[in-house]
Design a protein around this nucleic acid. Structure first.
Length: 358
DNA sequence: ATATACGGCGGGACACGCAG
DNA sequence: CTGCGTGTCCCGCCGTATAT
């Protein structure tokens, strides 16, 4: 599956939200900006020079993709902030820091003097590095933009490989929330299976069947379909690949349905048949629908979007829920905050000991 | 022929320097 | 301090090139 950056906003965001890839790109591309308010800044003119396009072309794109580029960090500077920015540019000009595009043809954008910009400009369009890349993804004509895109994609792949060693199966476990959610879910799972034992007549299929009902209700796939999409073999646990938000929701279903089952069975003063249990599940779903819908929408979107971006797994039935993966998610699963589960367990050993001894 | 990308042109807005 | 000339930027409008 090839990413088409020029036409798909989701693909663009999935690259731009990957802050590791962005800083990697900054190092590699060597198009230096001026640090201001913690970000590297570039004037519109200089960006135009880099891509070898007319300034007007950029402005046209700003008209059509203004929101997206602003999200990426494009800003119109005016007034006092512009003044501050100007000083920062002058400063870095003196220290001769900002300059020099390497990598390709030596046509270094001419001197900074005429670029360090006019003292009279009442306002000026400024790109951050991220916005600069974003623009490059929108330019169809510029050859340099084309080259830039392929460089960026290589970097993105490198970063993923470096961080995960190609193993994305358990990327869900790298985020902080996974462990507590998994533990909670484990407990509710017990409530659930106990309830199935107590209140439903014996059938060895009831567990799997009702679990599939939950899965289908949440993300429209049964366990078998899910396995196929994520390429899991029969040994591998489905739940250990799920994101914390999905696990939380499963906890809710399990706990809620266990309770529902209990009430019904006690009211009738007998165990329920398996088919009654199925009817009851439909009833439960109905009652809970209004309450659960917002959470479920969110879980579907997170699951479909992350699996596509991280695992290259497409959940066909959740296609409409695919969105970009947030910058926060990239950080949580790949960045500083992310961690292998083993390491997190190690770090929390004391806590677990206490829990165990209780 | 139509749609799309691009660039030229000029008006409006504003900052700066300077004269009064 | 104030008013004015000047330079520069943004942006809307329009013509041209190119692909479909």
């Amino acid at each position: 599956m090839t990413k088409d950056l020029t036409t798909s906003e989701v693909d663009r965001k999935n690259v731009l939200n990957n802050s590791l890839a962005i800083s990697g790109a900054y190092e590699q591309i060597g198009f230096r900006g001026v640090m201001f308010e913690n970000k590297y800044r570039f004037t519109k003119q200089r960006v135009a020079q880099y891509y070898e396009i007319d300034v007007r072309t950029i402005e046209r794109l700003l008209e059509n993709h203004g929101k997206e580029l602003a999200d990426s960090g494009y800003e119109l500077f005016t007034g006092i902030r512009l003044k501050k920015l100007r000083e920062a540019f002058q400063e870095s000009l003196k220290s001769g820091h900002a300059d020099v595009s390497d990598i390709d043809v030596g046509d270094i954008p001419d001197t900074l003097e005429n670029e360090a910009f006019s003292l009279r400009a009442p306002s000026i369009g400024i790109f951050t590095f991220k916005a600069f890349l974003n623009l490059g993804m929108l330019l169809t004509g510029s050859e340099r933009a084309q080259r830039l895109r392929s460089i960026i994609l290589d970097i993105v792949i490198d970063v993923l490989n470096q961080k995960l060693g190609g193993k994305t199966k358990y990327i869900n476990q790298r985020e902080e929330e996974f462990l507590p959610s998994a533990i909670r879910e484990y407990n509710y799972r017990q409530e659930f299976t106990n309830a199935l034992d107590f209140y439903i007549e014996g059938s060895k299929f009831k567990y799997g069947q009702l679990t599939d009902k939950i899965y289908k209700s949440i993300f429209k796939e049964n366990a078998k379909e899910y396995r196929q999409i994520l390429n899991l073999n029969n040994k591998e646990s489905v739940r250990s690949t799920m994101y914390s938000e999905v696990l939380d929701l499963i906890s809710g279903y399990e706990n809620g349905f266990a309770d529902h089952l209990k009430r019904k069975s006690e009211a009738l003063g007998r165990k329920l048949s398996v088919s009654e249990a199925h009817t009851l599940f439909a009833e439960f779903e109905k009652i809970m629908e209004a309450f659960i819908t917002p959470l479920r929408e969110k879980a579907r979107s997170l699951m479909a979007s992350r699996d596509l971006a991280f695992r290259e797994a497409l959940h066909e039935k959740l296609k409409d829920y695919i969105n970009e993966v947030s910058a926060n998610d990239f950080d949580a699963f790949l960045g500083e905050r992310s961690m292998d589960l083993e390491k997190r367990l190690e770090d929390n050993k004391e806590v677990f000991k206490r829990l165990k001894d209780r």
